[in-house]
Design a protein around this nucleic acid. Structure first.
Length: 659
DNA sequence: CAGTGAGCGAGCTTCCGCTTGACTT
């Protein structure tokens, strides 16, 4: 064999194999093939942070196979992704497989899209492995290991055995804990709105307008008495049109999906968890229907854009095709541009054409999101005809804004429900029906039909759900496409947070852990930490900074702080949620504790009294079999289900909440 | 899709990011 090419994934290997022909054998490494050991820190702090790399058990078979293949190859081409992790994978392979011998000779090749042209070009211009980039990855890996493996044991000692802390998971948890605090501290403030129902005398058409200001100042109506005063003042007022303003508003399509935006949109539109989205996306990818699903790039290949433009012209006509192809820029700073955006492999495979194929409903729905998002991105922007009308009554000003779609453009794909992730947190804001405004002339006097005062209360900030948490983490540059879904699983597996009705609530344990970490290690778990770290890693990659001393700068103060905390900090008492239930043995209240299987109830007097019982969450539902109460419980694996409170007499159980 | 945590205590738990296929508990 002449040429052995190694990439990360089998699918990438298959594609590359097609382009390169029979002279090249293309194999997959299956991700990283060497890593720090799981069983201990694996970093020799005394010896300038020398890492100890081992081949994980599940990779030994693959490594041996690759070694064997490499032995008979003349040239070894390392074609892993063009980013920090990809460079490190290439380096580890070269260290393990390349050996010091002359054969095979090692070449590193990089390309930013998997097309025959880009691949051929890359193979014409191989380079050496970029050790500076590798060092940046090693620094990242070792830093994460030190934070995780030094602080977790501190939690075992000071809080509870089996807990974990990490640069990413602890900040994700902190976000949820702090939001919980804000919500608990929130005091709703009353306010009133006043709307006027008005009629145009000449046409007898009516519409509503909202009170906005008094004497040119924004009017805040704080209570019923104030509202009544204003309504009284306005009852006999003359309502006159002051100004009618028309303008065109353009609405642009959102960029194609990245992992993060796909997860967010699938969560808010389809109710999928990040985990479920990734499982289905992986399956679509393996069927060759979509591009790679772990990416932070919104780039599209030239061929894909051309195909989309062709389709748009054919299917919708030239009005729907922008003069120039729309190019999206990846704005996230951490983006490493190794892949394309997530898009359909072929735009000709429309969601409708798939209906009869052997796909599940969920596969279809996710594919439809991806297809429309990509296609819409290449269509013309929508144009809205927006009319703003100011109406004067005494010293008061009312305003009405109405808009109609003049040209639907990309919105044509969605009917009237465009899919954008800005909607994540606004689900409960009922969308006001856009009202069609009658024809209005300036200085026209209107008839007042009715004044409608209405009481409202300010709302606390919304709880995080999977979508909004992923969005926030990405904004902070924390986590990567391959880790968003696992992070969410981890903080739930540790019982740091609970998901109820798809929203996150911090547990007492999560609050205790966060308070401990943020009190003693404010720097590490600040929202700024990862951003600062990334800046330093960039400098390492550019050769402006040595990686070992960078780790030292960080670790020296941390190590000291750990030693002090270990000595001086007391054991953290987790505030127990006290239930109304009484202990049948001694009459004390029962408290909620966390065991191996999740929550359970134990007597407050433990260890004097050892009574325990299962934890059940009351749910607002009635058993369809016996009419008793329904409680939420968990299977041994932790999946919640709904069962009858009278179990075992009544055997009713269901995954979904009974109506 | 339901039976378990607390007698005692040794030994173990843990990170982030890259990627699929597991062999039985």
């Amino acid at each position: 064999m002449q040429n052995l090419v190694i990439v990360e994934s089998p699918t990438k290997a298959a594609t590359l194999s097609r382009f390169l022909g029979s002279q090249y054998i293309v194999e997959a490494s299956m991700g990283h093939i060497r890593d720090l050991p799981k069983s201990d820190v694996g970093v020799d702090i005394e010896n300038n942070f020398e890492p100890k790399y081992i081949i994980p058990k599940d990779k030994t078979k693959r490594v041996n196979e690759l070694k064997k293949l490499a032995a008979s190859a003349k040239t070894l081409w390392l074609a892993t992704d063009p980013d920090r992790e990809g460079e490190a994978i290439a380096w580890h392979i070269s260290e393990l497989i390349g050996s010091r011998n002359a054969s095979p000779s090692i070449r590193r090749v990089v390309f930013h899209e998997i097309t025959p042209e880009a691949v051929n070009e890359a193979f014409l211009h191989p380079r050496e492995i970029d050790l500076k980039l590798v060092d940046a990855q090693q620094a990242r890996r070792i830093l994460d290991r030190l934070v995780g493996y030094k602080l977790s044991p501190l939690l075992w000692k000071k809080v509870k055995s089996g807990l974990s802390a990490g640069r990413v998971q602890s900040v994700a948890l902190r976000l949820i804990v702090e939001r919980d605090k804000e919500i608990n501290a929130f005091k709703a403030i009353e306010y009133w709105s006043i709307e006027a129902q008005l009629e145009v005398p000449s046409s007898s058409q009516s519409f509503t307008s909202t009170l906005v200001s008094l004497n040119g100042k924004k009017l805040e109506v704080r209570n019923q008495a104030e509202a009544e005063t204003h309504v009284g003042n306005l009852q006999k007022a003359v309502f006159k049109v002051l100004k009618v303003e028309k303008k065109d508003v353009r609405r642009y399509p959102p960029p194609p999906f990245t992992t993060s935006t796909l997860q967010q949109t699938a969560s808010s539109r389809l109710g999928f968890s990040a985990k479920k989205t990734m499982m289905i996306a992986q399956n679509l990818y393996e069927r060759g229907m979509i591009t790679y699903m772990r990416t932070d790039s919104v780039n599209l290949s030239g061929a894909a854009v051309s195909a989309a433009r062709e389709y748009i012209l054919e299917e919708f006509g030239k009005n729907y095709l922008p003069k120039n192809a729309r190019i999206f820029k990846t704005k996230s700073k951490s983006a490493q541009e190794a892949h394309e955006a997530i898009r359909p492999s072929s735009v000709k495979v429309t969601p409708d054409s798939l209906k009869k194929d052997s796909l599940t409903r969920d596969h279809l729905r996710l594919y439809e999101l991806i297809w429309k998002r990509m296609m819409g991105g290449q269509m013309s922007e929508a144009v809205l005809d927006q009319t703003s009308v100011d109406i004067e009554a005494l010293n008061y000003l009312f305003r009405t804004v109405g808009s109609v779609i003049k040209f639907d453009g990309w919105l044509k794909l969605y009917g009237n429900a465009p899919i954008i992730e800005d909607e994540i947190n606004s689900e409960k804001e009922e969308k006001k029906e856009e009202q069609l405004l009658p024809k209005l002339e300036e200085n026209e006097v209107l008839d007042l039909l009715k004044l409608l005062p209405d009481q409202h209360f300010t709302e606390p900030p919304p709880r995080f759900n999977e979508a909004s948490l992923i969005k926030r983490l990405e904004e902070l540059g924390i986590g990567r496409p391959s880790t968003y879904a696992p992070i969410i699983s981890t903080i739930q597996d540790r019982f740091y947070v609970e998901k109820k009705e798809r929203k996150f609530f911090a547990t007492e344990l999560g609050i205790a852990v966060t308070t401990f970490l943020v009190t003693h290690f404010p720097d590490v778990f600040s929202y700024q930490f990862t951003a600062d770290m990334e800046d330093r890693l960039d400098e390492i990659a550019e050769g402006k900074r040595p990686w070992r001393s960078t780790i030292a700068e960080f670790y020296e103060p941390l190590g000291k702080k750990i030693a002090i905390t270990e000595e001086s900090a007391g054991k953290v008492e987790i505030e127990r949620e006290i239930s109304d239930k009484k202990c049948p043995d001694c009459g004390s209240n029962l408290v909620v504790k966390f065991g191996r299987f999740g929550k359970f109830l134990a007597c407050l007097k433990f260890p004097e009294c050892k009574h325990t019982e299962g934890f059940e969450e009351r749910v607002d539902a009635i058993c369809p079999d016996c009419g008793g109460d329904i409680v939420m419980r968990r299977t041994k694996k932790g999946k919640p289900f709904y069962g009858c409170k009278k179990w075992p007499e009544c055997k009713f159980a269901s995954w979904t909440k009974p109506k």
